[in-house]
């Protein structure tokens, strides 16, 4: 099947969109109270104010939309990070970019009281950019260039450091702790639909920027020098890519907290399906990330009923085996 998608990538993308709609429907229908798909459709087209309709429209619809947007952002951001660093273990989560955004948001909530959504979004961008810059600088410190492993370890240490600082902020202010505990574990539940509306412009700019980078990234994947030899201004490509990563990861964190391992796994799955051409890998990653995060959120609702797990937990539990398998393979290759 996947040979087909490799030769006709557009077809696969279409199939992916179909799956996305399916996942969307499943997400609207499932939860503590399962709602038949007919009722779900009625709630969307002919809203009558019944409890089931209310659940669909005011609870499940917003969270599914947020999951879709955040998943798409993280998938694309992960692909960009891996392409820019040429490192299969890179992702906004593993490199500490999510942790930077989280720290900035937590600090903002602590210091500013109740800042506006846009302030928070810009704080998240700032945090993400600072963390990304720091990891990149660190990784370039060592002699003999950056090996993927060292970059990943530097990111992990950076994430540990930033997370500790975040915890310090939380403990310093118990109010913040209660407000953002769920958000900190990565969750799309109970978020105000306004959040999505506010963040959507940033997400769209990030996505547009990313999708425009497909061709330059193909050249870059052959190595910096080759890309330069092909007449590419690699500095600009990298800067644009980094800006897109910061926008995408920052707004994803602002919307749903740090959700790990999605950005790591999705690029690998996309490349496996469609091959190495970034013009296709990027949109595939977006669609795949959206599907996976919606389904992970459905899982989060179902695994510990009647309670609910943060979706970040589900992505971590699914993503860790993936990460370990990758780590084992990468080290073996060295």
């Amino acid at each position: 099947m996947y040979a087909l998608f490799r030769s006709r990538p557009g077809l696969g993308l279409l199939a992916g969109l179909g799956l996305l709609v399916l996942a969307f429907g499943i997400s609207l229908a499932s939860g503590l109270q399962a709602i038949p798909i007919g009722t779900v459709l009625e709630a969307l087209t002919a809203f009558d104010g019944s409890p089931a309709h209310l659940v669909v429209r005011s609870i499940r619809l917003p969270r599914t939309l947020i999951a879709m947007a955040v998943g798409g952002c993280l998938g694309v951001a992960g692909t960009l990070t891996q392409a820019l660093t040429r490192n299969p273990l890179a992702a906004p989560g593993t490199l500490g970019i999510n942790a930077g955004a989280t720290l900035a948001v937590a600090a903002g909530l602590y210091l500013l009281g109740t800042p506006s959504l846009h302030t928070l979004a810009w704080l998240a961008f700032l945090g993400a950019a600072a963390a990304a810059g720091a990891v990149y600088a660190l990784a370039n410190l060592g002699r003999g260039g950056v090996t993927p492993l060292r970059l990943t370890l530097a990111g992990a240490a950076m994430a540990g450091f930033l997370t500790a600082l975040t915890q310090g902020v939380l403990v310093a202010s118990e109010r913040t702790l209660d407000e953002i505990r769920l958000w900190l574990a990565g969750s799309v539940a109970g978020r105000d639909p306004e959040v999505l509306r506010g963040l959507l412009p940033y997400m769209l700019v990030g996505l547009a920027l990313a999708l425009g980078l497909g061709r330059p990234l193909n050249a870059l994947s052959l190595g910096e020098e080759v890309a330069r030899g092909l007449g590419q201004r690699t500095g600009w490509v990298k800067a644009a890519g980094a800006a897109a990563v910061v926008l995408l990861a920052g707004s994803a964190v602002a919307a749903a907290g740090p959700i790990g391992f999605l950005g790591l796994a999705v690029p690998h799955l996309s490349r496996w399906i469609v091959g190495p051409d970034y013009r296709w890998v990027l949109p595939y990653s977006g669609v795949l990330g959206a599907i996976l995060l919606i389904l992970a959120d459905v899982g989060a609702r179902l695994i510990i009923r009647p309670g609910e797990a943060p979706v970040g937990v589900v992505t971590a539990l699914l993503g860790v085996p993936f990460f370990i398998a990758l780590a084992r393979r990468e080290v073996g290759r060295r």
Binding site: L153, G312, V313, A316, L317, V320, F323, I324, A327
Partner: peptide, 14 residues
């Protein structure tokens, strides 16, 4: 170390 980071993340998630 990498595997440990992964395991720690899983334990944290649990």
């Amino acid at each position: 170390v990498l595997v440990g980071i992964g395991i720690a993340a899983a334990a944290q998630a649990l």
